[in-house]
């Protein structure tokens, strides 16, 4: 078969012009469905970012007894540093603790009531995997349930941290399911739209077969068209998503930051992951368009 790009592109665009309504429907179906998928993905990613930044603020504070020996203190510090889950250990002496306390409560009545230095020294432990926080905390407790020698108390936000982790785990799997379902719905919808537009042109296919066109000759303009519809539709959805996430999400995030008093947030304008989501949507759009055409044609191309 001779490859004749002018015929194929010509037919593709003539087809699109003459079946404008079908063409328009296919593109907007792709654009709308992928927009929904993408919007959800970005929201999930965004929430994930919020949760991660909350998690990363999880710390274990190990308060030491005032009478702890220097040897024991050094021993503990080295021991903690050696744990895999530990990112960073900071020793806060009694003096430093008092200083910080004074700074935090400047001008407050409470400072006048403080006599001497009631604040304990402590280790502040940052973790590489915040989920392990309870495990780490338990290492400072002996078999009988008492704190080990030299340790006065261990604090890590016992209740809320555990809840946060189980909630995010459940929310994560629900979000995953919803994304899969949205994706499936998008694919089915796009497939059906493209199938309909091919069905509308079955007479053309019949004539082509009748006068002796090869299967590839029949197929190629439809494949171009399907690909183009998927590609153009997904580009539109990405442009919409871009404006949406730039204006709405950033505002939403500011609101979250303000109301929840979270230290820092992954503010998402366009970063790498978002770019991947956009690229993924465009690839998906083109691919679904192409494959839909290919599958839908099977029925009409026989004979």
């Amino acid at each position: 078969m001779i490859f004749r790009p002018r015929y194929f592109f010509g037919e593709t665009f003539i087809g699109m012009r003459r079946n404008f309504l079908m063409f328009f429907t296919a593109i907007s179906t792709v654009a709308i469905t992928l927009f929904i998928v993408g919007f959800f993905l970005i929201i999930v990613y965004d929430v994930q970012g919020v949760l991660t930044s909350i998690k990363s603020q999880v710390e274990v504070a190990v308060y030491l007894k005032d009478n702890i020996t220097d040897e024991l203190k050094v021993y503990l510090e080295n021991e903690i540093k050696n744990w895999d889950e530990v990112d960073e250990v900071t020793f806060v002496s009694k003096d430093q603790a008092l200083e910080k306390f004074k700074k935090d409560n400047e001008g407050s009545e409470i400072l006048k009531e403080i006599q001497g230095n009631p604040l304990p020294a402590s280790f502040e432990i940052k973790l590489t995997s915040p989920e392990k926080v309870e495990q780490i905390a338990l290492r400072f407790v002996d078999k009988d349930g008492n704190y080990i020698e030299g340790v006065d108390e261990v604090i890590y936000g016992q209740n809320y941290v555990q809840k946060l982790f189980s909630i995010t785990a459940i929310a994560g799997s629900i979000a995953f399911l919803i994304i899969i379902m949205l994706l499936l719905a998008a694919i089915v919808l796009v497939f059906n739209t493209i199938r309909l537009s091919i069905h509308a042109r079955r007479k053309e296919i019949e004539v082509m077969k009748l006068v002796g066109a090869t299967n590839w000759f029949v197929r190629i303009p439809f494949l171009f068209e399907g690909f183009f519809e998927g590609f153009a539709g997904s580009l539109i959805s990405v442009v919409l998503l871009y404006f949406m996430s730039n204006y709405l999400l950033i505002r939403g995030e500011k609101a979250i930051v303000d109301t929840m008093h979270v230290k820092e947030l992954a503010i998402l304008g366009v970063n790498n992951v978002i770019l991947y989501i956009y690229a993924g949507l465009v690839v998906l759009g083109g691919l679904v368009g192409l494959l839909s055409s290919s599958f839908a044609l099977k029925r009409y191309i026989r004979v």
Binding site: E11, V207, M208, L210, V211, A213, F217
Partner: peptide, 27 residues
């Protein structure tokens, strides 16, 4: 060549295009 009772012409192509189509699609 095949001819049928229902003509099987493409409604959105002109007379010229309908005939030309048969040659185009065989390259």
């Amino acid at each position: 060549g095949s001819v049928f009772q229902d003509f099987k012409l493409l409604p959105n192509k002109t007379v010229f295009e309908n005939v030309a189509f048969a040659l185009e699609v065989i390259g």
